[in-house]
Design a protein around this nucleic acid. Structure first.
Lengths: 345, 345
DNA sequence: TTGAAAGCGATACCAC
DNA sequence: GTGGTATCGCTTTCAA
């Protein structure tokens, strides 16, 4: 009785309604159906009404995959992001997705646990025919070359490249660190500890170098550096390392991100019984949510994440439309937040 | 001199290498090229070597879009997630992406700011021909019907539906809350405040109801409820509301998530000068990172997020392979964490 | 404005 | 094992 032939097809036996089905049902040509779903097409009012009714009745949705194949545009953009970045700045992903979807572009997500996985990943990105790519991860010069060779528009998020013409949006890490150092030195701090981020993080290195440079310029001699990995635990451990290295607790600790600053404060207060900011000043960088919690009230430089993602999205979409645009770097100043975690005068 | 014809095509003028190019360059048929890139295909060693060499030389990558069109499988899964969920549990997204990509499936991201946006969004999901969908957002019965009608496999993440056969993975909220209440009542607390999540959150409602039910069973009469929205600020505000409503500070406050519990603790300590846990016990739910920070050391129920995402991924992939599998609910117990934010004996 | 027909770049099936 | 050919569902000329 029942026709089972459809089930014999080896691929998805879920029934798909195509533009042909709609055309037949509406008694028009398939091209007409296609036109009705294309924004600026020339279709008569009557035709559109008829087609839309038929589409409604059959539950038709145009197949984006087929559209991509012929039009050469997938309306998808790749977002390549490392695990750490997602964990510390979850809002980036949400905002990117939100803003791009407003422009009719979807986010295809590529996360990397270890930055080494990136070569396979780039192959994947290219296979999926994304129209563009936003990269919040470290790429080697060769990898960047490879992307450019394929002609895929891309924008770096929060990494800059001094010697390369490239699209990037970032926060001025150096400027921010210099401000923090200025304030701390002005307030009389003389013995400094720095808790850096992981060595392979360009952002962390810029922050650390920015602070070191300014300290040197101001003639501050007593400076020790401990390496962290952006985590709470490494902030706590960093303080102990610094104390061991310097013989005693420094006057101020500059952390490469807020979560480490928080770890550092907690270690000072709860492990060492040291009062922050009375006996020790701690500053961070980035301005994540918990920085504002009243237990910490961090002095930090808040990155304008919203504006940065907005910029990244508009840059990538512009370049999808017009691949020949000149490379552009957009560098935002951070917002200086004078919290209660540091004595500033 | 130069041939500009390629540039006249209205779509991406970026040159694409196709399997035909590779075939010509290797002197074999196009089908042969295709087979070489298909895992279990029967190709001679010699042929494979030749094709791979040609592909390498031309920089060929198979076009996933074209593959999807004919094979009926896009190797993409939609992840529908609300803004709040991403912010509080960023690891969900990373883990989903990681685990799915290990299985050759990419995540197409759909975020919603307001849950009302969801109808347009479902249309979008369907257009992109994803193979399956993981939903960490609230859907109405009608919306679920619509998905089922389309035959798209889907799994709910951390929402359950008592009266519906549906795929879902979640954490047993009720069980967890009952445990918290048991411990608090056993320790002698008698006056309870509850800070709930937003009214439209099913998860929050389950937690709040679970606590209320157990309190009733144990004969606890003095209970007040304040509504929060999962944010730090609303946790702080909730405590003030409870105090106003009850005439004084309760013995214990049960918060529908950890961030509100943290807000509540900070408000108690820094705004009201109340000691936690000596004068007030506070418990949360979910076990986010900051719950372990030594300033808070929350008593909470940690959701096994890793196991839950693992389960969600395997459930969805199984159902992509075999759409006729029976609906299944996988309910994980939370991990009871006895932190220092509550007096438990 | 509408319809017919030619692709987009793969896979699947069929002979050989 | 290999090569030809139909096909996936749409957009896009091109005539009518």
């Amino acid at each position: 009785m029942t026709d089972n032939s459809a089930n014999n097809r080896n691929h998805a036996n879920r029934q798909r309604v195509t533009s042909y089905d709609v055309a037949r049902h509406a008694g028009v040509s398939q091209s007409a159906v296609s036109r009705c779903f294309k924004p600026g097409a020339s279709v008569s009012k009557k035709m559109r009404a008829r087609v839309m009714k038929a589409a409604e009745e059959l539950g038709y949705q145009p197949n984006a995959i087929a559209r991509s194949l012929i039009s050469g545009r997938s309306n998808m953009a790749a977002v390549v992001i490392s695990q750490k970045t997602t964990l510390y700045y979850p809002e980036i992903l949400v905002e990117l997705s939100q803003r791009m979807s407003e422009q009719g572009v979807r986010v295809l997500l590529f996360t990397l646990e270890h930055e080494s996985d990136i070569d396979d990943l780039l192959d994947q990105v290219l296979q999926y025919q994304v129209d563009g790519m936003i990269v919040a991860a470290r790429l080697s010069a060769q990898q960047i070359d490879a992307i450019e060779r394929r002609g895929l528009p891309f924008v770096f998020y929060n990494r800059s490249f001094r010697d390369r013409q490239i699209n990037a949006v970032c926060c001025d890490q150096t400027e921010g660190e210099r401000w923090l150092v200025n304030r701390l030195v002005n307030a009389g701090h003389r013995r400094f500890g720095i808790i850096s981020g992981p060595e392979d993080s360009a952002v962390s290195m810029e922050r650390t170098q920015g602070a070191l440079e300014r300290l040197r310029e101001l003639g501050v001699k007593q400076v020790a550096v401990a390496e962290g990995d952006y985590s709470y635990e490494s902030g706590a451990a960093g303080l102990l390392t610094l104390r061991a290295e310097m013989g005693r607790i420094p006057d101020a600790v500059i952390c490469a991100n807020d979560v480490m600053a928080i770890g550092c404060i907690d270690a000072a207060r709860h492990q060492l019984g040291i009062s922050v900011p009375a006996e020790l000043s701690v500053v961070g960088f980035d301005g994540v949510g918990p920085a504002r919690w009243s237990s910490y009230d961090l002095t930090t430089v808040r990155q304008p994440v919203g504006r940065m993602t907005e910029a990244a999205v508009s840059m990538i979409l512009e370049r999808v439309e017009n691949p020949d645009l000149q490379p552009e770097k957009r560098i935002f100043s951070g917002l200086m937040v004078e919290g209660g975690s540091a004595r500033l005068d």
